[in-house]
Design a protein around this nucleic acid. Sequence first.
DNA 1: CTCTGAAGTTAGCCTGGGCTAACTTCAGGG
DNA 2: CCCTGAAGTTAGCCCAGGCTAACTTCAGAG
Lengths: 152, 152
Amino acid sequence: MPARIYQRTRLDHASEIAEDYVEAIADAIAERGYCRAIDLVTHFDVTHATVSNTIGRLQRDGLVDTAPYQPIALTAKGKRLASQSRKRHEIVTAFLKRIGVGDRAAEIDSEGMEHHVSKETLDAMKRVLEQGLPSQDRSDKPSAEPMEGISR
Amino acid sequence: MPARIYQRTRLDHASEIAEDYVEAIADAIAERGYCRAIDLVTHFDVTHATVSNTIGRLQRDGLVDTAPYQPIALTAKGKRLASQSRKRHEIVTAFLKRIGVGDRAAEIDSEGMEHHVSKETLDAMKRVLEQGLPSQDRSDKPSAEPMEGISR
DNA sequence: CTCTGAAGTTAGCCTGGGCTAACTTCAGGG
DNA sequence: CCCTGAAGTTAGCCCAGGCTAACTTCAGAG
């Protein structure tokens, strides 16, 4: 059964950093109007050299638009990826908080989890945020009164 | 605020493969009494060479016990990691199904997500599985009757 | 008992994502 | 107008985790 799953997990990983970067770039631009490499250096706590390499890859992949010693801009594609990642990230964070995870842990965990959340799971999280838990539709016990609503 | 978060995410990644491997090894042993490299080749859909390399790293890290042309066994440390990962994995999968994610997606997503779930988040998932959603304890509206219990 | 094919290893290569060290750009203060 | 320090780049290194190709082991059929 597995096999394919792991291929997906591996491919996912390839784009995780790209997503984190475009998100950070979009944030910097939103906040101060532009993004410089130094912003990413402090944000990710890596060296200038690493940022330079990574930005090179992002540019190669058509996500950012920049030139030596110039600020870093997002391409249309980069902007799309950024806003999509941002939304996903926010939903995951809100969801974790909703199920009782503390703010700090919710922020840390959502950072790692967001990249592995499929559309289907994201939709399920949204539904929980809006409508609460779905009824427990196990084939055995089709009982309609679950007990999870009781406060405390 | 960030910075540290990303360091953690990077470190997490280092052990993801180790966790997947020990889990797979434990499964094979549980099912057939032993694990051979070929089992991992088919399980992860990678080449023999890759499995050989990876097993070498796991051995270096004290997780498995093996010798050339011999089956692969888990050390005590490896067994601990495997059972811990397995439990976490099961909880995440069950949790996703509980919030309405289909079986297939739940299995795929949990594979990617499990490595990023902290103890705190795992506990929250367990609570949801056992007791449903916590009451919505927003400072505004401390209402004690959430509406998620309603079937449909 | 040999010999053959499946299992496993080894060598050599690649990419991604890190690093340090050394260099280049460039803006601002003096 | 220069010159210095912060920002950025380049070169060269490392490890993880993939790959292919070529080799070795080993068990089982004949």
